[in-house]
Design a protein around this nucleic acid. Structure first.
Lengths: 212, 212
DNA sequence: AAAATGAATGAATGGTTATTCAGTAATTCA
DNA sequence: TGAATTACTGAATAACCATTCATTCATTTT
C-alpha cells in the first residue's frame, strides 16, 4: 500500500471510453427515433451493452442527455476554432473559413443536425438545454463580429450595422441547417455553403474573390 | 324522418370547437413541457375536460399532434397571405410585407415558436411532421422568389442568383425565429424584424426607403 | 313527456420504461 | 496464486401513460 494511491490507468481510460461510447449511441438513437422515443434500452443496445449501463455511468437519463448536448457543443466549437487556425491571414479569409466550417461533414451531417434540432425543440421547457445551446453561440458570435468589424474597415464599407449583420449571418447559418434537415428537394451541406458564400460576395463586393 | 338527414348544427359546431380547444391545449402543453413530456392528461386538464376526451375527438395522441401541426401551418399561411393582400402594390412593398409578417405576434410569439421547433426537432424520425413542415415553405418560397425576380428587374440589380437568395432569406427568417426562442439577451420579434429589414436595404439599396 | 341519440366522463387495463441492486465477471494488487 | 477491487449484467420493481368502455349526463326528436 503506497501513500499516494496509484491511479489505475487502463480502468480510468475505459471509463471515459464507455461514456463516449454511450454518448455516441445516444446520438445514434436520437437521430433515428427522436428525443421523445429514445429509451435507455435503445441506447444500451446500440452500444452493445446491458440494460443498466447508462445509470452506472451517468446516474440517470437526464444526465446522459445533458452530456450528449455538451459533447456536441464542444465538438462544434473545436471544429470552427481549428478552421480559423488553418485559414489564411486577413479578415476575409478567416471569415470565409469560419462560416464554411458550419457545413463540414463532421459537425453538420444529418445525424448531428437531427440531434441539435431535437434539443432546440425542447429548449424552451428545459433550462439546461437552453443554456448549453446559448453557450454554443457566445464565442462564435464574438469572433464573427470582430472579423466583420475588421473587414468593414479594410474594405471601407459603409452603412452597415455590425450587430445586426452578425445576428443576420448566424441566423442564416442556423436556418440553412434547418433547410438541410427538412428540405423536400435534397438541399445539402454544399448547397448551404453556396448560399452563404453568395451572401458574403454580395455584402462585401470588394472581397468577392475570397468568398468561393 | 326526412329524406335528407338533418344536420344538427349546434352539435356539429360543438365538435369543431372541441377539437380546436384541444389543439389549443396541446400547443399550451408543448410550449410549457415540451413535446416529449406532453401527456394526454395534461392536454385534457388544460382544456378543463376529462381523461378520455382526446381519444374521443382525435382517436389517438399521434393524430392530435399531427392536427396541431397542420393547424399551425394553416394559421401561418393565412397570416402571410393576409399581409400580402394589405401591402401596397409593387414588389418592394409586397416583399417587405411578406417578410415582416413572420414577426407578427400571432404567428411568432414564444409559445408558437416553441411548438414549431418541437415538431422540427422530431421531423427526421417522423415523416408526417417532415411533410407538413415542408408544405409550410412551398408556397411561401414560390411567392418570395417571384417578388425577388420582379424587384431585381425593377431595380436593375445585377449579379444576383435568385434561387440562392431565396434560400438565404428563408434560412435567415427561420434562424431569427430560433434566436428569438433561445437567445440569452432577450432578442425579440422586433429585433428580428430589424435584422431582416437591414438585410433588404443592403441587398436592394435603390429601394432602401421601402424597407423600414 | 318519454324515448332516442350523441357527448363526455373517469376508473380500469395493459404495455412501456427508468431505475435499482444482488449477483457475476474481469482486473489489479500483494 | 489468492484476495480485493471494480466493472458490468439483467431480472425485478414501481411509476407512468395511452387507450378502452361501461356509465352518466345533455340535447333533440317524436
Amino acid at each position: 500500500m503506497t501513500a499516494i494511491p496509484k491511479l489505475q490507468p487502463t480502468r480510468r481510460a475505459a471509463k471515459v471510453v464507455r461514456r463516449r461510447q454511450l454518448i455516441d449511441a445516444a446520438i445514434e438513437s436520437i437521430a433515428k427515433r427522436g428525443l421523445g422515443d429514445t429509451t435507455l434500452s435503445h441506447v444500451s443496445n446500440t452500444a452493445g451493452l446491458s440494460q443498466g449501463i447508462v445509470n452506472l455511468h451517468f446516474t440517470n437519463k437526464e444526465n446522459l442527455l445533458n452530456e450528449t448536448l455538451k459533447h456536441l457543443r464542444g465538438e462544434y466549437e473545436r471544429n470552427w476554432r481549428a478552421a480559423l487556425e488553418k485559414a489564411p491571414e486577413g479578415p476575409a479569409g478567416k471569415l470565409a473559413a469560419l462560416l464554411k466550417s458550419d457545413y463540414q461533414a463532421n459537425v453538420s451531417n444529418k445525424k448531428k443536425l437531427a440531434v441539435w434540432f431535437a434539443f432546440w425543440g425542447e429548449a424552451k421547457s428545459r433550462p439546461t438545454y437552453k443554456k448549453i445551446s446559448q453557450e454554443r453561440m457566445t464565442d462564435y458570435t464574438e469572433i464573427l463580429e470582430e472579423l466583420l468589424t475588421q473587414l468593414i474597415k479594410e474594405g471601407g464599407y459603409s452603412d452597415i450595422n455590425i450587430t445586426s449583420m452578425t445576428e443576420g449571418i448566424t441566423a442564416m447559418a442556423d436556418g440553412l441547417w434547418l433547410n438541410i434537415l427538412i428540405s423536400a428537394c435534397g438541399f445539402n451541406r454544399s448547397d448551404a455553403e453556396k448560399v452563404m458564400l453568395q451572401y458574403l460576395r454580395q455584402a462585401f463586393p470588394k472581397h468577392k474573390d475570397t468568398f468561393y
